[in-house]
Nucleic acid binder design. Structure first.
Lengths: 190, 190
DNA sequence: CGCCTTGGCTAATGGTGTTAGCTACAAGCT
DNA sequence: AGCTTGTAGCTAACACCATTAGCCAAGGCG
């Protein structure tokens, strides 16, 4: 029996891909093992169990989403940055619904949990977007939460087939970005 | 062995309550049976299995959310209606996270699935809210999707402990409602 | 070349969801 | 009332899953 040469990262990535394909809820140790050409108990040499594996997928997803947002916001500002960040997040959720579900369903388990910083990177990029609007100090946190809410809400509704297909979802998303942009600009110097 | 006198509705309600308490993901046939003082296989006399039971919980949740929104919007209009609907939805999600998760995770399985109409009632109430703003015909669908997105996003993020606790979440929600209200009013007659 | 860490295995356990088939309850008829 | 009958809830059984214990050989390192 030749060795498969697995480690925690490979197992996590296989699990993440599988979750994207079949949905996080249907993720199972046996399916991950099957995909890796290995018997189920072998996974426990690299990963602590299904709950722990799901947590690792969450960290992976948070990191990747953070990367995407950082890249999207890089070099642009204002409404352009808002649109870029929004589209990047939406695209990620569409491409990786399983990772995103794991990410949003997980909470940091302690002060040294890598999930905390990973999630923080997303917030950092969104804060950078908002910085371009010159909001009052007191509005910042509320605007950030509003921004997270719209983007998260739209992306998850779309990923869950929550919108009827007959009207263009892309157009709605552009409209939404414009709506938020206008609202933020109105609050710019008030 | 005296009979327990169950039916599909009682089983569904017990499942919904359980889902609210322990989370939809942890809902199981055995726990529902235990709560009803019955052995697990007995449930199959009333319900088709866990998937079907979850779907019933989704229909129940959609119906209840529809009721809450209808009541909230009743007799008010404009910004008042928006605020009432928003708070009603947010409160429902906080009180019944399991039902809401089932509702948002389910799709109608066919043309005669009661989930379709049940979900439609929520949309009807939100459309009524928007009607108070006198939007252009073309903006209606986009505004509706925006509204669903913010409310759904905020509620699910809050339910998932997605917001840091140190800043007031209630204040952020009021800020969000005001943000949406201002944006919609700006588009009123344009 | 041989040690020894360790990755993957088989076997076994406890917990799920689900089906089949029995039994006795309770409603309905005469 | 008593008898019949549909059926609610039961036990037994099976398949599948996550998880643990213990074995055994692969392959890096001396």
């Amino acid at each position: 029996m030749p060795r498969a040469g697995l480690d925690a990262a490979t197992v996590t990535e296989a699990a993440a891909d599988l979750a994207d394909e079949i949905g996080l809820a249907r993720l199972s140790m046996s399916l991950v093992a099957e995909r890796l050409g290995v018997k189920t108990p072998s996974l426990y040499k690299h990963v602590d169990g299904l709950a722990s594996l799901t947590h690792r997928v969450a960290v992976l997803g948070a990191t990747e989403v953070g990367d995407r947002l950082r890249d999207a916001v890089q070099g642009v500002s204002g409404g352009e940055a808002l649109a870029a960040a929004a589209q990047a997040l939406r695209l990620f959720v569409k491409e990786h619904p399983g990772r995103y579900a794991a990410t949003t369903g997980a909470r940091p388990a302690g002060p040294d949990d890598p999930l905390g910083p990973a999630l923080g990177r997303t917030l950092t990029s969104l804060e950078a977007v908002l910085r371009g609007y010159g909001l009052a100090e007191a509005d910042r946190i509320h605007a950030l939460r509003m921004l997270r809410s719209v983007l998260h809400g739209f992306a998850t509704l779309e990923a869950g087939d929550g919108f009827q297909i007959d009207t263009d979802v892309d157009a709605s998303f552009l409209w939404l970005i414009d709506f938020v942009d206008l609202g933020l600009r109105a609050r710019a110097s008030s």
